[in-house]
Design a protein around this nucleic acid. Structure first.
Lengths: 335, 335
DNA sequence: CTGAAAGCGCTTACAG
DNA sequence: CTGAAAGCGCTTACAG
């Protein structure tokens, strides 16, 4: 099979300890003779030696792997996040195992279990809403982990989220300052933490401006059926009088849905109708110049989330007390 | 630390072998008494035993992990592919380690080495063009691997690509049948295998129709700078007389660029101008009704690629001869 | 300066 | 039916 440290040791008539030491860069420190080191290095190169990281991990108790669980990697928000997280993880010396929970909390549980069995050193999770609001039980308190983007109701570990409520508030307030009075709010997966927060921010802004919450202008859609449901919802809202004069969407997915709707129905928006959503991309920006995009702090989320798990892992390695969990709320950029 | 098989064995006064056997489901086969099995299972549950897969892997020589290397997970083509590959891999019992090569072939090499050291059982790679056309050396011939989407020049292992040339040919032929005569071809990363194939298909169609290749109507852009370069290219091509009457783009990224261009310049396309591209999404479809999209066979690529590596891995496990490498060309759907 | 040995947590012939 | 033992490929005190 593959060449091992033993093969090198035998070939060179030295012990495996000597080989291991020089290969791991401790040669000088542990006073292996320069000459022996040379021979070991040369031999390893010649035999194309690839260390078996599994064995090292088993011995050391650390795999240098991190588990990442997102709901859906095909959502550009999560693929961008995964990309940044991979970069940050790499910088910290970790490789990523990525799993998708596909909005199925049973699957999420399975993935958490799987990744733990695979001995990842830590877990980064964009948690799913759980039906019974029961916190996940199989994740030990002291296991290095960070929840990002969303939160589990009783989660007490590290978390990194964006300033959903504040950004929402600010965005809607701007619409109001621009004259909007009848602002529709459309959500996907209204039960999720971030979505509830975004809805709250909307309420905050209405309240601040003394505007009533109008049930007619509110709609909850589900991630599984929003594509087919959205047209009817838009039909309904656009038919309301007095006219809606702004739309606030909790996600870019709905804006894409709106664009499809406008194309297919060959209708435009009411004159002067304002739009806003969370997350977006250059294309949406140029297609809908009136769209305000709340830009998610993707780099910062990735950086902080990785930092937090890595910190926790470091403490474990050193055997020191785990750092107190942090709850970070990172600012979005409203553009 | 974590509870091990030894802990269970000690607590129950049985050997680790007994525990291991019953936990791995070989209890009946190896005639462990029902009662002992019960006790072991109960104890494992009670202690929340999580097997250390690292140890098992080291022992068995297989990690049940697969490495996936894509150029850029934020490209929807690759995120959709990664998603399907994860699903297929899971079905086959594998977990995915995903790395991005970011169009940097040195990074790609590092990732291949890293994943091999992490002892993935096989590798799925969307290979990068290599500057000197030298095949990658550090990937042993007998290592289970499959190249997909792209090919390395001298790659002789398994590969799964789409019918780039044929689909391109067919798409351009359709445009010609609809009356298009001056068809522009815009490429990103013209040196890549699939892009060369797509360009060839374009040539095939022109030739078949007796149309001349017109250098003016051709442009190569680079993935790093196409965003800023595209407007000038479009300016140039749209200014040419006689007028261009169709655009063929090798990638959806350029269509998004075109849309941005049209918005920013506030210009439309020449009357009746046809469009086509590889890969796309519902939004592009509805924004540009005249756009023909060559749909990549993403599910099939994922399924076949995983099947091929898994086959190779199985043969390794059984010690039988590796199956002859397959080169699959999967049909695209032209819509 | 170098080696023998134990151990990480499993699995699997082999004995009994 | 069950256990003692070797081994997967490393690392790391501990001796000398």
């Amino acid at each position: 099979m593959a060449v091992s440290i033993k093969d090198i040791a035998e070939k060179l008539n030295v012990s495996t300890a000597t080989v291991s030491l020089t290969l791991s860069g401790q040669g000088d420190l542990r006073k292996v003779s320069k000459e022996t080191q040379q021979r070991v290095l040369a031999c390893a190169r010649e035999l194309r030696y690839q260390p078996n990281v599994l064995a090292r991990s088993l011995n050391k108790g650390y795999s240098e792997n991190l588990g990442l669980i997102v709901t859906d990697i095909t959502d550009s928000f999560f693929s961008q996040l995964a990309n940044q997280i991979e970069l940050e993880a790499e910088r910290a010396g970790y490789t990523l195992m990525i799993c998708c929970s596909h909005n199925d909390y049973r699957r999420e549980e399975r993935m958490i279990g799987l990744l733990q069995q695979k001995r990842v050193d830590g877990l980064l999770i964009a948690p799913l809403q759980r039906p019974d609001d029961v916190p996940y039980q199989n994740l030990a308190d002291d296991f290095p982990a960070v929840a990002f983007d969303q939160l589990w109701p009783h989660w007490t570990g590290n978390s990194v989220v964006s300033s959903d409520r504040k950004s929402s508030h600010e965005t809607v307030s701007r619409m109001i300052r621009c004259g909007a009075r009848r602002i529709a709010l459309l959500c996907i997966d209204a039960g999720r933490y971030s979505v509830r927060e975004r809805a709250r921010g909307y309420m905050d802004a209405l309240e601040e401006a003394g505007l009533p919450f109008c049930e007619d202008l509110y709609a909850e859609l589900s991630i599984d059926s929003y594509r087919s449901d959205l047209p009817r919802v838009l039909d309904r809202i656009l038919a309301i009088r007095p006219r809606v004069d702004a739309f606030f969407f909790t996600t870019h997915l709905l804006v894409e849905g709106l664009l499809r709707y406008m194309q297919e129905r060959a209708v435009g928006l009411p004159e002067g109708c304002r739009l806003a959503c969370f997350h977006g991309n250059p294309l949406l920006r140029s297609l809908l110049p009136s769209l305000s995009i709340v830009q998610m702090p993707i780099e910062a989320i990735a950086r902080e989330a990785v930092r937090l798990v890595c910190n926790q892992i470091e403490c474990r390695k050193k055997g020191t007390a785990p750092p107190p969990p942090e709850h970070l709320v990172l600012d979005c950029l409203i553009g």
